[in-house]
Amino acid sequence: MTTGQVVGPTTAEGEKKFPFAPLAALDVLWLQVAGTICNLKCSHCFISCSPTNHSHEMMSLAHVRSLLDEAKTLGVKEYYFTGGEPFLNRDLLIMFEVALAQGPVSVLTNGILITPKVAARLRELSDASEHSLDIRVSLDGYDAETHDAIRGRGMFQRAIKGVMNLNSAGLVPVITAAEVTDDIGAERGRAQFLEMLKSLGVNRPRLKILPILRMGAEVERTRAYQEWESLRGHTLSETEAARLQCNSCRMATSKGVYVCPLLIEQDGARMGDRLTDTLGPFELKHSACFTCHSTGFSCRT
């Protein structure tokens, strides 16, 4: 299977253009089920989610069902549920049940709403399916000091409680950490994360490190993207294109289908109403495209 076209960097007039990323196959469907609504207001959130941000609303069960039906016909390989905080969507567990019947599910959560009862229900849903249910809990630091500076006082303990509840239910969560400090992604930071998790009795610790995206709330915490952080004029090779997550994913929100999970607040990133509208190439004109390209990063686990 070819990964598609390679796009030259300039027009006849010599103006530098952005490369296009083809969609090789729609393997991964993201669902922004809680929109931009969250029970936290993290200072690094690249889409500025909060209890009052209704830019993208909660998705309805009917909407999610129709997207899942469409995804089935397109041969989608896996489903990711996110927000905002997805567990704020009161239909989330029903959505999981429907999705797990047709493919593996991952969910990105801050862990706060994962009570023992919710964890037990997640275990039941996982056991009832032939597919994996992967639960990713965000911990932006291996101690309360770092985590709470980003997510609010007391939140480290509450997230840890969620992790412990999942662990007790026999589920093996993936801890997701954004590189809010320099050492988190380095060997020492990773080792401290793993040690902290083991000390809590999590005997199969899993860790995913995400780069910082200089959009949304993060702009105030550190800085915005600068002009050089751009793919303008870059020629994308087939190998580079294959590494980009937009080569194999799309993101659905209450407002339509977007190219990827990062760009739902960016102009021009909405590609259509239905998945089949969005199977064409995408112009990599956003600064976050530069982050994906330069770090080789994917939001997938």
Binding site: M1, A25, A71, L74, G75, Q102, G103, S132
Partner: peptide
């Protein structure tokens, strides 16, 4: 069939995806 190092795990290879690969 599409990638020499793609991992096809039992719990991550759903039927609609299999159908598509067989067709492709």
């Amino acid at each position: 069939p599409r990638q020499i190092n793609e991992f096809l795990w039992q719990t991550m290879t759903p039927r609609p995806f299999i159908e598509k690969m067989l067709r492709d």
